[in-house]
């Protein structure tokens, strides 16, 4: 890797203590992401992949390790020190029904980050940016005054994506961002995320249990199992010539649809 990575995670550990036992959710994970690159982090439930994302956004405190974002260690920062960096490190959540505050209109939800990070100078400016971002994710300006329950799951996930994109982040962590959606809607949202990523040049850590989705969106892939990364590589290498036994088992487990004759 010649250029300096945007994010360089070194030996990240997140341990939880519950009733005297220590759970090593993340146990020494290292990877890096270049500017504009999409790294897929794939693994089965409980492997610690979501905790990695939560540690990188300080939703969970790391036990040990470093995460250098443009050279600064974000894990050792206090909440206050990390605040200005939040603008650049954003997160898309899994459940579109739970990730929006039911009491706030779409405009209220989207204006919050704008005012916190002092991006909008005035109400009018904020309104214009919100409308622009909604358009970007495929929603009309009439969405602004409405509440989350008035939208379908797919639309809500678009609003969640808008909340992230409105800050023009450098790194987006997408935690199972399309897993809760119906297949036909999932495809739309995947296309949207991919397009936004390409147009904006943001880097992305795409966390998912779904290998097909990860292959579709990622440049490189890291496979995680039991708190550790077992294999990292270009997606073609991971999917065409997996080295690790666990990766192979994972790939073999996926039900396949027999080759079809393309008639269209």
């Amino acid at each position: 890797m010649s250029a300096q990575p945007l994010l360089d995670v070194r030996d990240l550990k997140v341990h939880f203590r519950t009733r005297g036992r220590t759970v090593r959710a993340v146990d020494g994970v290292s990877f890096d992401i270049a500017p504009g690159e999409v790294l897929g982090l794939v693994g089965e439930s409980g492997c610690g992949k979501s905790t990695v994302g939560r540690a990188l956004t300080q939703l969970e405190r790391a036990t040990a390790g470093q995460a250098l974002f443009e050279g600064q260690d974000i894990l050792s920062m206090s909440r206050r020190q990390f605040l200005p960096l939040r603008r650049h490190i954003q997160m898309i959540f899994q459940d579109p029904y739970a990730s929006l505050n039911p009491r706030l209109t779409v405009a209220q939800t989207l204006s919050e980050p704008l005012f916190i990070h002092k991006i909008a100078r005035s109400r009018k400016d904020a309104q214009a940016r919100i409308a622009e971002t909604l358009d970007l994710v495929g929603l009309g300006p009439e969405a602004m005054t409405r509440y989350p329950h008035e939208f379908s799951g797919g639309q809500r996930q678009r609003i969640g994506i808008a909340r992230v994109m409105i800050l023009e982040p450098k790194l987006v962590i997408a935690d199972e961002a399309v897993s809760a959606l119906d297949v036909s809607i999932q495809a739309q949202v995947l296309n949207l995320i991919k397009k936004l990523q390409r147009d904006s040049g943001m880097a992305m850590l795409f966390i998912s249990h779904d290998l097909g989705v990860v292959r579709h969106i990622s440049d490189r892939v890291a496979v995680m199992s039991a708190g550790k990364i077992v294999e990292t590589g270009d997606k073609s290498a991971i999917f065409e010539a997996p080295q690790d036994a666990y990766t192979r088992r994972l790939l073999d487990s996926i039900p396949r649809i027999m080759p079809l004759k393309e008639t269209s």
Partner: peptide, 17 residues
């Protein structure tokens, strides 16, 4: 079927409904 990202080949965009 076209909405499902395949694991054995790369497509740039999904043919979403």
């Amino acid at each position: 079927l076209h909405s499902i990202p395949a694991i054995d080949r790369d497509v740039d965009w999904l043919d979403a409904i």
